[in-house]
Design a protein around this nucleic acid. Sequence first.
DNA 1: TGAATATATGAACAAACGTTCACATATCAA
DNA 2: TTGATATGTGAACGTTTGTTCATATATTCA
Lengths: 110, 110
Amino acid sequence: MDSKQIGNLLQNIPDSDSIMRMAAVFQALQSETRLKILFLLRQKEMCVCEFEQVLSVTQSAISHGLRTLSQLDLVRVRREGKFTIYYIADEHFRTLIEMCLEHVEEKHEL
Amino acid sequence: MDSKQIGNLLQNIPDSDSIMRMAAVFQALQSETRLKILFLLRQKEMCVCEFEQVLSVTQSAISHGLRTLSQLDLVRVRREGKFTIYYIADEHFRTLIEMCLEHVEEKHEL
DNA sequence: TGAATATATGAACAAACGTTCACATATCAA
DNA sequence: TTGATATGTGAACGTTTGTTCATATATTCA
């Protein structure tokens, strides 16, 4: 492999910032708790105390998980009186979640 | 939220095994080195010594990274004499990689 | 055979992670 | 105001991660 080809290969991968951003997103998706949060949010907007009823982790763990997701702008927040309501940030990301779901459901049919 | 609705929400998230599998895949995609490996493999099949010329990590790190990816069946291996050639496992996964690429390129245009 | 090249692997270690605990803050209702 | 409910946050802790180093294995070629 000559240096020309090496340069070519390197030019066709995302730049360092993009790679870092992607790594950060995937690492947020790597936690089972956060994945469950997202598959719940896919169904409806939810506040922390609702997650608490569904997931078997502490309120603190949920809160930390949601913070990770919202720092990456994968979920967003709306305050409604006593409650803090979380929802999927955009249709782009919702599509990704739906794709994951389709994918696992497909595997189940084999 | 009544217990009926809780049950409903839980029924519509992937089962525990699927969640675990997904978490494992995302966790493989969370490493910058492994992401770079995949964006290179998207362009052409490669052996370890070629990765070595392109990436600035040790041969050992590349080998470990490739093992992680192939254990999850995201990349596959073919022996060719002295060389071990790695390639993207299937079109399904290739599509995912292409989607990531499109996504970051799109962001760049803003 | 022996030297060179290509790859794999296990141990080690620092860094990062996810959870819980304890506590702080905020909002509502009385 | 006070008590109850909802949520956020930092520290702590055990666990897992990614890399490197050292070494082992495998293949080719002379």
